[in-house]
């Protein structure tokens, strides 16, 4: 599975990189970034799902890699 952030939706609430710093980082404006290629192992998937469920802008999606 792979996680992506829709940069057009992200407004920098910072929920993803706070809850799941192993999966997400941020740019110089504080907007969320997926670290690496976004391909998730089991632990990463759980963290990414937590972040997805807490993003107020619905900017995170998880799908087949």
């Amino acid at each position: 599975m792979k996680v992506v952030i829709d940069a057009a939706r992200c407004q920098g609430h910072g929920r993803c990189f706070s809850l799941a710093p192993a999966v997400f980082g941020y740019d110089e404006l504080g907007n969320g970034l997926v670290l690496g290629d976004g391909v998730l192992d089991a632990d990463g998937l759980e963290l990414a799902r937590l972040a997805e469920a807490n993003c107020p802008e619905h900017a995170i999606s998880i799908g087949e890699s």
Binding site: Q11, G12, H13, G14, G30, A53, N54, P56, E57
Partner: peptide, 19 residues
């Protein structure tokens, strides 16, 4: 555990000082 609250707003005016 799941909390998409809007305390810092929504959209382009998201509170700049939220961090």
């Amino acid at each position: 555990k799941e909390n998409r609250h809007l305390a810092f707003g929504l959209g382009i005016h998201r509170c700049a000082g939220s961090n």
